[in-house]
Design a protein around this nucleic acid. Structure first.
Lengths: 345, 345
DNA sequence: GCTCATAGGCTAATCGTTTAAGCATCGGTG
DNA sequence: CACCGATGCTTAAACGATTAGCCTATGAGC
């Protein structure tokens, strides 16, 4: 049988209330008693039952993390793992636990989510990267628990953190233009997600400013496969293309693979720029030029924001909407256009 | 304010006991009352508070998942994500929630873990891939909660699931030998983990049977970087090598990258075989010959085993130790040795 | 008409904590 | 010496559910 506060009280010869006061650092207990209690706690290895504690304090010390993507896609990209890492670190440091909700089948996800909320299993929620107008955000809002979004958000009164997607994509495109590229392809993310729209807009803005007009766009998603398909499609249909920008690093590597199969050398015949800066980008044979977004920092910030709101309602928690900067990292996948081009193709 | 069972009782004009009986499917309630109660539940959107429920039933409906690796390495490899996917699916289906414990700093990991247990935050625990003799397993054992291990395990009375690592590696090596390779390199996993030892043993057994004697071994780990380093080391030191087997797919791709940089063509000059069959292995430019392990199935089995033990102690739960088979998947990274070799180097 | 089993509800104890309120004890003050 | 305010501890009421056991009305059996 588990050891309860009553066992400790009996052993120390005091009431349970006194034990509780000792453990909750009240100064209402004499030094002598305090020590006796602490010794008993030590000897019995007592730890308060989280359920009982939660019931009376009305808190669980659990933070829900909601990732409304199929587990498939969640981890095909290193984005979420990295995010979880940031979240996990802060959450553990602050003495909370992580209740993870992965998407299985769509229909029961929302019900799992609302169970999580209405059964009061968590004190607050972090929602990672949800599509625009998703039912998930609505549900979480209705739940009435504090929550923080990771990703683009235009709703009022919602706390969110995100990187400056538009500026990032702008920098990527700008880098290509500065190198001298004029015929540029773009492999987008899934446009149901606002980050994909924002990145596309940043990209297009750079082209507009450069007087290049509109790009050759392939509507894709962030996967390797999408990058392959996109590059094949772009390169086969628009012969003059000398550079491709992608909405993710995984897609960029897919594009590189497809381009090579078509006989392009990277970066000589084709420049490719990604977005994310996943660890792989420095390890691959072709080190990727990309836009670094500090993913785990997003996780840090989101959890710190949420926990701050949970613990002390008087403490200032920073702005509702936090946008952090990206950074262009130039490696080996981009170069000035080879003017000979692939005329031979 | 949240709606409690008392609110429902008041609205339906009955006692809380009756509401509870209705919700717990007792037949002690008349049809008329039952319907009245259910209507009230519906209208108020009542959901029982998990804490209160857990307190009296002495269960949390949470399953702890313990991954004793740095979050860094956890997700640099698609192994854990895939595992989580399997676990998450079953856990959600059975109405449980996932309490995730990632390793931050080593020292507090064990304490976080024992908090999880002794504060009674979970009903059972899944421990994924722990090093030999790790403190983690000891702690979990002491905790007294049911748990299931994913990975090699030689402890008595411990439930575990794993793939047949030795047989898998044996098959990989055997495949190379059958193709005609005689000078074979091996890039191992981290030998503090038993799976790495088992794979190495399987590999060596195939060589022994083939009368090849001992291999050129590089002690590494499962990362891309390790594969790069390993291949570079092996190829630079042992000139005759025509094939390399790796303890993971990521390492295999690292090896491929390094080999290509050294001027080797895959598979013409060098065959490479991996282990895992991560999704990437079919998407990469060079489709990888590898040993498929059904990772998410490991997750399935582990959670089903654990939950079976939690729910009904009478139900049979299968054997303590479950080993599932691997499968050789032949793709494009292996071929018969090119006898001209790299004599030119 | 009386007894008695049963269906169908309620009361109250319980799970393991926290915490407001109450009650001694004690030293100091007028 | 009576009184007072700390000090230090205890009692008991919550928190929101479950469930054993009790009570009452109803109808069947004799």
């Amino acid at each position: 049988m588990r050891v309860t506060i009553a066992d400790v009280a009996a052993k120390a010869g005091v009431s349970t209330a006194t034990v509780s006061y000792v453990l909750n650092k009240s100064n209402r207990v004499s030094k002598k008693t305090r020590e006796r209690v602490l010794r008993a706690v030590e000897e019995l290895g007592y730890q308060p039952n989280a359920l009982a504690q939660g019931l009376v304090k009305n808190e669980t010390r659990n933070i829900g993390v909601v990732i409304p993507h199929t587990a498939e896609s969640v981890f095909s990209d290193p984005f979420f793992p990295e995010l979880l890492k940031g979240i996990g670190t802060v959450v553990a440091r602050e003495g909370y636990f992580l209740l993870l909700s992965l998407l299985g089948a769509t229909e029961d996800f929302v019900s799992v989510l609302s169970n999580m909320i209405s059964q009061r299993r968590v004190d607050g929620i972090i929602v990672a990267s949800t599509p625009r107008d998703s039912e998930v955000v609505t549900k979480v809002r209705e739940g009435g628990l504090p929550f923080t979004l990771i990703g683009p958000c235009f709703l009022p009164d919602v706390h969110s953190v995100d990187v400056d997607n538009e500026e990032g994509a702008y920098r990527a495109a700008r880098h290509l233009i500065d190198l001298g590229h004029r015929e540029i392809g773009y492999i987008s993310g899934d446009m149901r997600f606002d980050y994909a729209v924002q990145r596309y807009r940043g990209f297009q803005r750079a082209l507009d400013e450069g007087g290049i007009g509109s790009a050759h766009v392939h509507l894709g998603d962030v996967t390797h496969r999408s990058g392959q398909r996109g590059a094949r499609h772009l390169l086969e249909n628009y012969r003059g293309i000398t550079a491709i920008a992608c909405a993710s690093d995984m897609a960029a590597y897919g594009a590189i693979a497809a381009a090579r199969e078509l006989g392009y050398r990277i970066p000589d015949d084709l420049s490719v720029v990604g977005f994310d800066d996943i660890p792989f980008a420095q390890e691959h044979e072709i080190k990727l030029t990309t836009i670094r977004q500090p993913i785990s920092k997003l996780g840090y910030l989101a959890s710190e924001n949420l926990i701050a709101r949970l613990t002390d309602s008087t403490k200032p928690v920073g702005p509702e909407r936090m946008i952090i900067e990206t950074e262009l990292v130039v490696r080996d996948s981009t170069a000035p256009p080879n003017n000979a081009g692939r005329a031979d193709l």
